[in-house]
Design a protein around this nucleic acid. Structure first.
Lengths: 153, 153
DNA sequence: CCATTACTGCAAGTAACTTGCAATTAGGAG
DNA sequence: CTCCTAATTGCAAGTTACTTGCAGTAATGG
């Protein structure tokens, strides 16, 4: 974590930014929280260490970090209109989202790289990022629903 | 289109809903518009035929249709906080999004099915839907940017 | 230690949707 | 065909998640 923090500091400075206490706290909070928290979740957790931290600062910092490649935004169906964020490279790039319990599971799938490369070649585009999201029922919810016969309500 | 409309009508009725003029208009508008319009775009276009149609009705109808499987919601990074919608099954399930000009291209990729099935089997989950989004530069934007040497603006 | 200017907190604002409610109307019963 | 009932609509008033203006604070370079 300290390592990640140091690399982050370097990148912040390199981007002409200042490594303020708030920025450091927000970055540390991102490493301490489960994956893809919302700005409010980051704020709630970070406020445990510095209760003066303002939600506005969290929004601004998250967006600044995003613009400078340190965090990646996520947007999931069924998670309302909240934006979610992850430290860049800290988690799998792809997600499974349970439409019943809203649980989010992460995974990597090298095959997706192949699909992306293939698409890029055939359509002369440059692919910079890929995000696969699977929607369905997680193991628990699938069991809970298993007895339902298909085809009716 | 008429075919699609008739099938839609049947499903609406089957779901215990009424096929009102507004619903018909909104469905027709969805077939006439380019892919994944926002509620505002649907409203603007539909209002050309019935200027009394209310935006609220468009939102409600879109959500009702979504809940009954007739339209699919889309959410893309970089498209602000707008919800987008497509008639179910009317377009490719996957998308390429140009981060420069915001253009969205659709495609299908059977390989994704395989990834989904594979994930479902290994994690005992039930996958109901999959959405792959590729981010990058479209052909035009890639060319426009090509001469730029890497590392500077 | 000082100057510069990025960053922060607070309050006010905005955009995109959502909800309450009375009026309307589709679709079935008779 | 007419009437009844509940689904649907339009309007206006929310709500929510995020954004912006501005004056004060503080990180960094000199």
């Amino acid at each position: 974590m300290t390592d990640l923090l140091e690399r982050a500091s370097a990148r912040v400075r390199a981007a002409g930014g200042r490594m303020t206490g708030q920025r450091r706290l927000i970055l540390e909070t991102l490493t301490a929280l489960p994956a893809h928290p919302t700005a409010e979740e980051v704020h709630a957790r970070a406020a445990r260490r510095d209760s003066t931290l303002n939600l506005t600062t969290v929004y601004r910092t998250l967006h600044w970090l995003e613009a400078h490649g340190l965090v990646e935004p996520r947007r999931f169906r069924g998670h309302g209109r909240h934006d979610h964020f992850d430290l860049a490279g800290a988690h799998g790039h792809h997600h499974f989202l349970c439409t019943q319990c809203q649980r989010v599971l992460e995974f990597d799938a090298p095959q997706v790289q192949a699909v992306a490369r293939n698409y890029a070649r055939r359509h002369a585009v440059k692919v910079l990022d890929a995000s696969l999201v699977l929607y369905g029922l997680c193991a628990e919810c699938a069991i809970r629903r298993a007895p339902v016969h298909r085809g009716n309500a």
